[in-house]
Design a protein around this nucleic acid. Structure first.
Lengths: 151, 151
DNA sequence: CCTTGACCTAAAGTTAGGTTTAGGAATTAC
DNA sequence: GTAATTCCTAAACCTAACTTTAGGTCAAGG
């Protein structure tokens, strides 16, 4: 009977593996916008399965919910997103992911160098400020693994 | 004059870029063990600079404080750690990092495949349960980016 | 000596991403 | 028709990793 009545929150939870409470939380954060049936219960479109799957994958990639919302907001309103729409979103994803992999790889290579040369504390050590910790509080680059230069 | 009196918490903060409150917190978590001077103020060894640097780098790699503590606890007690000691610790690091890079790379490759084939919702999509989310609650693999098989 | 800046503790507050609880109302199953 | 599910909201609670606040003590410079 429930053909185009939409999915209940429980059904969505079963299909995605998410907790019902998590789905409600995502709605509160604006990631999904279900409508309500006559009795006031949430009803979801099938396309929301894909939205939630996107959320789950993006989280594994390390994105925050506001970042994910920003991506989802790029999807067209008023119609069900097409494959092309999703592919567009996923491309941006790929770039962010590439960047993340690059950062980690650089970090690893630096670590290798430090292990190899045994420096671990020399001013030459490249392991400083690899991410944007500095940007947070306007600090300059910080030297890690030991002494600052000239000390 | 302060030659072997140790470093104050402020000096340590300046040298590492950490907040004083963060350093106190790390002590509370057992990551560093300063002694106290006559007035009850914390005094740190120079080797603690390296410990804190290690903490900062390990956090960038995604380790939790308890995990980092576990690594630091492998350092010898009673003497200042040598280069070899630090190299030993860093090796474990490298392995964890390699694993992380591998996971992300696989994830990216799967994403590429999904963008390329436009599937994004088909049962063949490889983007399911890439990490151990399932292990948390004993769930089986979950199909992401859309429909479960046979639906 | 005395002021100012650095330091102390304990406890409460913060953010992200949720979960749990309490008290009801709607749906579904028999 | 009624019992068992499922769902509702609001608010409290949770963990990690800190920061902030409040009320006081220590240490260094002039």
């Amino acid at each position: 009977m429930p053909l185009n009545d939409g999915l209940s929150i429980g059904a969505l939870a079963d299909r995605t593996g998410l907790a019902v409470s998590a789905i409600r939380y995502y709605e509160a954060q604006g990631l999904i916008k279900p409508w309500r049936n006559a009795g006031g219960q949430r009803r979801f479109e099938r396309a929301d399965l894909r939205r939630l799957s996107f959320v789950m994958i993006a989280q594994q990639f390390g994105f925050t919910l506001p970042q994910i919302k920003a991506e989802l907001d790029r999807l067209p309103g008023g119609r069900t997103p097409t494959k092309a729409d999703w592919a567009m979103i996923s491309e941006g994803f790929r770039d962010a992911l590439d960047e993340r992999i690059n950062t980690l790889t650089k970090l690893r290579d630096n670590l290798d160098g430090c292990i190899g040369c045994g420096c671990l504390s020399l001013e030459a050590c490249a392991l400083y400020n690899p991410t944007d910790r500095a940007a947070k509080k306007g600090q300059g680059p910080r030297y890690l693994m030991g002494d600052a230069p000239g000390v």
